[in-house]
């Protein structure tokens, strides 16, 4: 697959169809992958593809990355799950479909965190999203690299995150509250979760608005809770469960539980899952007379 990928990248750069290829490369010791930005066709051999390619590179397509935008039209190496984020960005008017060339990678799963890699991809080191993935054959692409995957996701979603959500749902409100207060108490307010999220593209995040100060910036329980709840609410109906926030959180707060819970709620209320069709607008940004609106009592 790497060979096809590199050839395509080369062709795209040489023809001038794109000016930069955003993909994955090795670190110095070839133990971890890291994002690379290839602008010179001579450098395409830097590109790699393997189960360590965890990053959701669609982040670099957002408006925060002015310098990357300035390089010119990008091609992006993307897994199906990453493409879901690109789709959300398009539906939210962040750019147009034709502004980006999507090199879709067929995928058999990645590791949850790169440190877990011991040379082989086994189910226990894969994130829940991979076990239930319906986009192993990437769904919105300009070019596909790799053999067609025959994987069919289980009828009823399975895996650690679903189990834990179910477990929490079965608890009383006060137990759930205690669970989250404890988890959030570790938050160090680094905002890595926000920075790594392709859908947190606001140029001025609400935490940084201080006239008035909506969210206390101190990492005390009150400030942490308001931060984490606010971020969660801002991702309802948008989050694709790519898991980047949880992966990046230096204190291991199980943010995927929140993400999956919200996804379940949106699915139930609107029968909508984000990131599949770039022509359908997400429920939170459309007005429809058919909305039940039974939350207004």
């Amino acid at each position: 697959m790497e060979k096809t990928l590199r050839l395509k990248a080369k062709e795209l750069l040489e023809s001038g169809e794109v000016k930069v290829v955003i993909g994955y490369g090795w670190n110095r010791s070839k133990t971890r992958t890291t994002p690379v930005f290839i602008t010179d066709p001579a450098d395409v051999d830097t590109l790699v593809w393997n189960p360590l390619c965890v990053n959701n590179l669609s982040l670099y397509l957002t408006r925060k990355y002015k310098e990357i935008k300035a390089l010119g039209r990008p091609a992006i190496v993307a897994k199906g799950c990453d493409i879901r984020n690109i789709v959300v960005l398009i539906t939210e008017g962040q750019f147009k479909r034709e502004d980006v060339f999507i090199i879709g990678m067929t995928c058999n799963g990645t590791v949850y965190k790169q440190d877990l890699w011991k040379g082989e991809l086994t189910p226990n080191i894969m994130p829940t999203k991979c076990h239930n993935c319906d986009v192993r054959n990437p769904h919105v692409t300009d070019f596909v690299v790799g053999e067609k995957s025959t994987f069919t996701p289980p009828e009823v979603p399975t895996g650690m995150v679903y189990d834990k959500v179910k477990d929490l749902d079965s608890k009383s409100q006060s137990e759930r509250w205690a669970f989250w207060v404890k988890e959030f108490s570790r938050c160090v307010k680094c905002y890595a979760c926000r920075q790594v999220c392709p859908l947190c593209y606001c140029e001025r995040c609400i935490t940084e608005k201080n006239m008035p100060q909506w969210i206390e910036t101190s990492a005390h329980p009150r400030g942490n809770l308001s931060w984490n709840l606010t971020r969660a609410m801002h991702l309802v109906g948008r989050c694709t469960f790519c898991g980047e926030c949880e992966r990046s959180c230096p204190v291991n707060i199980p943010l995927n539980l929140i993400n999956q819970k919200m996804i379940g709620v949106v699915k139930e209320a609107f029968d909508f899952k984000s990131g599949y069709d770039e022509k359908t607008h997400p429920p939170m940004i459309v007005f429809s007379p058919d909305d039940k609106e039974n939350f207004i009592k």
Binding site: P35, F37, L59, V188, C190, A192, V196, S248, P250
Partner: peptide, 17 residues
């Protein structure tokens, strides 16, 4: 500088640890 560090997402985790 941009060549080596444009991938930085500005999360600040490095400075906190």
């Amino acid at each position: 500088w941009p060549k080596l560090t444009r991938k930085c997402i500005g999360c600040g985790a490095c400075t906190f640890v």
